[in-house]
Design a protein around this nucleic acid. Structure first.
Lengths: 358, 358
DNA sequence: CAAGAAAATGGTAGCGCTGTCTTTTTCCTC
DNA sequence: GAGGAAAAAGACAGCGCTACCATTTTCTTG
């Protein structure tokens, strides 16, 4: 481990005394001496043990263990001109979606020699560009970025970085390097078509924090509604406010004000959907009889509600997991044949869109 | 940024060519040359600009900007024998509680020169010890650890680390260095006393993933129930299963089986509480008339449900935020007077424990 | 068993920066 | 304007490791 600061221009109060040199500090030299080999041989042991003869290998190993040697990664990075860091750029820590993605990334990278260094772009492509430049300066082993909407400069930086890069969360035709995601457009079409197929005509769209992926879901909604001849702009309500469960209720109220004959609602995420469900309980709107609800992402709680909530399952954990796995494989020269992986989605039909209480 | 790998004994496939040296690489020397100063002066500019005369300061600054200089942090760490990394050990990425804590940590450290390097202990104190050793080897500028239940070895490692350390999430009498948290014991007593004060007699306890902090909440529950002469072990149901909203419903069913006269339930977190609420809807149990519910943490959604759910607000974001802030202050020699900060808690009384529908 | 190829090992130099100490410059004050 | 103190700037060496190349040892094979 160790991660050096991400700030480009730090500024200390004062210089520190060069303290207690050598004080019990076990360097590679010490290990080499104890093992009776040259430092470079000891060095090789840690990087490529296969290159040593069995006898030396054993001697270095036991010497290292005896001395409790721990490599100095800063020195290693300086000498080798590279690090074992995987940089991860994610737009939010508030949004639970990324929680799952991060979990996948951490789980899959555990046990590997790589360290995850994640940073938060706060849904700003300018912030993303800035963070990308900082990563660039440090030559990470690989990079995971969210989505496909980077600035031109960001793209240029990435292309010049000379390390594998995986874009996650969605798909596009022009990857910087590799991609793991799914089509938000198609997923939205599936959700809306499901509602249309059930005979719903006045299907609303509820969106918050309209990031690029949510925009694409809106496009899918538009497409499906237009194809069915049901499109009506007054059925759409979006806000740039960050999403929250309480917001779901508020938005439903607003949408009902502009479209009182609403008979279904497609929420761009599950938090909104649950907020809508509670608002319906509050207003005495029967779900799904009067209003069908479908969410997006299929968080764990969607199966626990009353009525259970329909949603579109997205493979968030898997995107993280497969993303790093592909990345690490590429770093180590084992590139997969297909640079673009579609993890798909699954329509989870539950009571909120189908159950009709007789 | 940059973070060097956290693996102690990495192992490369092969040595890499020492590629394209000097190739446009802007080093401090180049900046110094352009600015017409010595490298060491340029170095000082980045660490302590106050020490330079105004003219040199401006010259170095513009030279750095012109060349697009970015410091090599590995070299810096090697030469200065320290890093600008703050290590964060957190037990889970699944539990949303830590999401909020992490958010506080990231928000408060943004703009500082420190990089957050967080690792996941998975609720294992052995894993924690292992990760602590890895951090130790790299001399982080500071450390944030969760809770007060470390192994003896972990404590020894921390005490020998020679860097500020903040323990977050709870309080104890014997901090390694600093602490930011609150009393889970007192918070549980407050929640249970509230229910007792409302005349509830058969108050259940529902717990999942019994980590040390949850154990202390159980102790608080025991204390309050015993003091009121209401304690009955059959009112307690715990499981080591990780918490989830679906689990809330299951546990309520089990608890009702062993205590059918249950009239209130204290859930050790909000997910369980919401799961319980839905299970009540499913079983036709009136909340709060037949069963009062109180959760723990006061997640955002607790105010959005029907009925709204009572909870104990914990200042998770603030624990993260204040934790790093204290840590950074200590790193930079501005130690606060009080090493132990109690962020308290707040009883959020809502409909699920009070409303009586006439 | 000699000769060449391959494998294993070692010597050297430096990655880019900063701590320490020394030298130079600037700023006072009388 | 001289003398001393403080501030500013610089020289030097080295942090711990690894890339590169040179060297030695081991393994083949005719």
């Amino acid at each position: 481990m160790v991660a050096l600061s991400i700030s480009a221009y730090p500024c200390y109060e004062k210089e520190m005394p060069r303290k207690a040199k050598k004080l019990g500090s076990i360097r590679l030299t010490e290990v080499a001496k104890l093992a009776g080999v040259s430092p470079i041989t000891a060095s090789r042991f840690f990087r490529n043990p296969e290159a040593l003869s069995v006898s030396k290998r054993e001697r270095v190993e036991s010497a290292a263990k005896e001395l409790g040697y721990v490599p100095n990664l800063a020195a290693r990075a300086l000498a080798s001109q590279r690090t074992e860091v995987i940089g991860v750029l994610i737009p939010s820590l508030t949004n639970n979606v990324f929680n799952d993605v991060l979990r996948g990334i951490y789980d899959a990278s555990e046990g590997s020699r790589y360290t995850i260094q994640f940073v938060n772009t706060r849904y700003s492509i300018l912030q993303e560009e800035k963070l990308l430049r900082l990563f660039q300066a440090q030559k990470p082993a690989g990079l995971i970025v969210t989505g496909i909407n980077q600035t031109e400069q960001s793209r240029a930086v990435m292309e010049g970085m000379n390390c594998p890069i995986v874009q996650i969360m969605e798909l596009g035709t022009d990857p910087v390097d590799m991609m793991v995601g799914f089509s938000h457009y198609d997923a939205a079409i599936a959700a809306v078509s499901h509602l249309i197929g059930l005979g719903r005509k006045r299907i609303g769209f509820l969106g918050a924090r309209m990031d690029p992926r949510v925009q694409r879901r809106l496009e899918g909604y538009r497409k499906a509604m237009k194809d069915a001849g049901l499109f009506d702009p007054s059925l759409i309500l979006t806000t740039s406010t960050p999403t929250a469960m309480t917001l779901g209720g508020v938005l439903l109220g607003d949408l009902l004000a502009q479209a009182p004959d609403l008979d279904a609602v497609f929420c761009i995420n599950d938090d909104l959907a649950l907020g809508v469900l509670f608002e319906c309980q509050r207003r005495g709107i029967a779900v799904p009889d009067q209003l069908a609800i479908i969410g997006f992402n299929d968080m764990e709680f969607m199966a626990a509600t009353v009525p259970t909530l329909s949603s579109v399952r997205t493979n968030r954990y898997e995107m993280g997991r497969d993303g790093v796995t592909m990345l690490i494989d590429a770093i180590e020269g084992r590139r997969t044949a297909t640079p673009i992986v579609d993890l798909g989605f699954e329509l989870m039909v539950r009571q909120s869109s189908t159950l009709r209480s007789a």
